[in-house]
């Protein structure tokens, strides 16, 4: 594997069984991840977008090995970790961290900020002295723009923006290489969201982080990501460098998602309206899973699932109709 790859997945699947009857027979499965092959390069921010139910959060959790995958591989650095036990995973835990939408729910309300921050170090660096741990906590809390004296205070004393900074500080304290940010700015007011996005951009460069940035907000992903992957029903349907994806979408789902975003500039624009909701991942449509909502679907789209094919430099799309001329909301 080339040295510049941080994490790679090969045909990654995560199915959640749906049990039925008194015998709890495994009747069906929710195919949350249905064959994801993806590479995240060292130092890049890969954006991951899609509707709720597309599987984007499950991908983040599975990469973190919080859930063992059903099949497929996860290669972290140069080690395949997808079959590792918790004991074998322990040295890798320090190197991968997660930032959540609601940091309040991931902070213990009865623990001071300092205790919450240093907790991961007790496990990851048991040799470290208490004062060294506190020094480290002070260092990361200052990195995220808060002052060191908040370490004795408790989570309820902080505003949403400050809590998210604390959540980021806790992710940073183990000096991770790879971070999954799951809707990290979605619950914040716009003015606070801008502050936290600026902070993430700053620490990403300063700490040379690799990031998977999971969000439903296309404008946010357009601001922070180098490349963007679009998910639909457990599959990646398109992936491309950010500017390329936004100006030249090659999958009808990407086109429809971008078209649905209301922006202050575009009023009364031509909109591609998707009908209905995302289908159930328990019984996805045959062939191309998007065909039931796709305005360009042909009968042949029901026959086979389209592979993720090359459409340009670093640009891949899974669509049976590569000849389509799709609209971009920002085409110049």
């Amino acid at each position: 594997m080339p040295a510049d790859v941080m994490i790679e997945t090969v045909a990654l699947k995560k199915h959640f069984p749906v049990r039925k009857g008194i015998l709890q027979r495994e009747a069906k499965a929710v195919r949350a991840l249905d064959g994801i092959s993806l590479t995240i390069r060292r130092g890049e921010v890969l954006g991951l977008v899609g509707e709720s139910g597309s599987g984007k959060s499950t991908l983040g959790k599975t990469l973190m090995m919080q859930e063992p995958p059903t099949s497929g591989q996860i290669v972290f650095g140069d080690t395949e970790i997808s079959r590792f036990s918790e004991r074998l995973l322990k040295p890798f835990r320090r190197r991968m961290q997660m930032i959540f939408q609601d940091p309040f729910s991931s902070l213990n309300p009865r623990m001071s900020v300092g205790d919450s921050l240093t907790m991961p170090l007790r496990f990851q660096a048991p040799d470290m002295s208490a004062s060294a741990r506190l020094d480290k906590a002070r260092q990361v809390i200052e990195t995220v723009g808060l002052s060191g004296d908040i370490l004795e205070r408790f989570p309820h004393e902080f505003s949403g923006g400050q809590r998210q900074r604390i959540g980021i500080a806790r992710a940073l304290i183990t000096d991770p290489e790879f971070i999954v940010a799951d809707e990290a700015v979605s619950a914040l007011d716009v003015s606070v969201q801008a502050q936290v996005l600026n902070l993430l951009t700053e620490i990403r460069h300063r700490w040379q982080l690799t990031m998977l940035f999971v969000t439903h907000d296309l404008a946010v992903v357009g601001h922070i990501a180098d490349r963007v992957a679009v998910m639909y029903l457990g599959k990646i349907v398109e992936v491309a460098p950010t500017r390329e994806l936004f100006t030249r979408p090659r999958h009808p789902y990407t086109e429809a998602l971008m078209s649905a975003v209301p922006t202050p500039e575009r009023r009364a624009h031509q909109r591609i309206m998707l009908e209905g909701d995302i289908p159930s991942p328990i019984s996805p449509p045959s062939g191309c899973a998007f065909r039931t909502r796709c305005p360009y679907a042909k009968p042949a789209c029901a026959d086979s699932a389209p592979p993720l094919d090359v459409r340009g430099t670093g640009h891949y799309a899974a669509c049976h109709r590569p000849e389509l001329e799709l609209a971009s909301p920002i085409a110049t």
Partner: peptide, 27 residues
């Protein structure tokens, strides 16, 4: 003006990042 300036613009998606404008402090 500050609120409008702090919203990331779809139009600028993927363009080399300048910082977003922010409003100091909070409500």
């Amino acid at each position: 003006a500050g609120l409008l300036a702090s919203v990331p613009r779809l139009e600028r998606a993927g363009l080399p990042g300048e910082r977003l404008a922010t409003i100091a402090g909070r409500v």
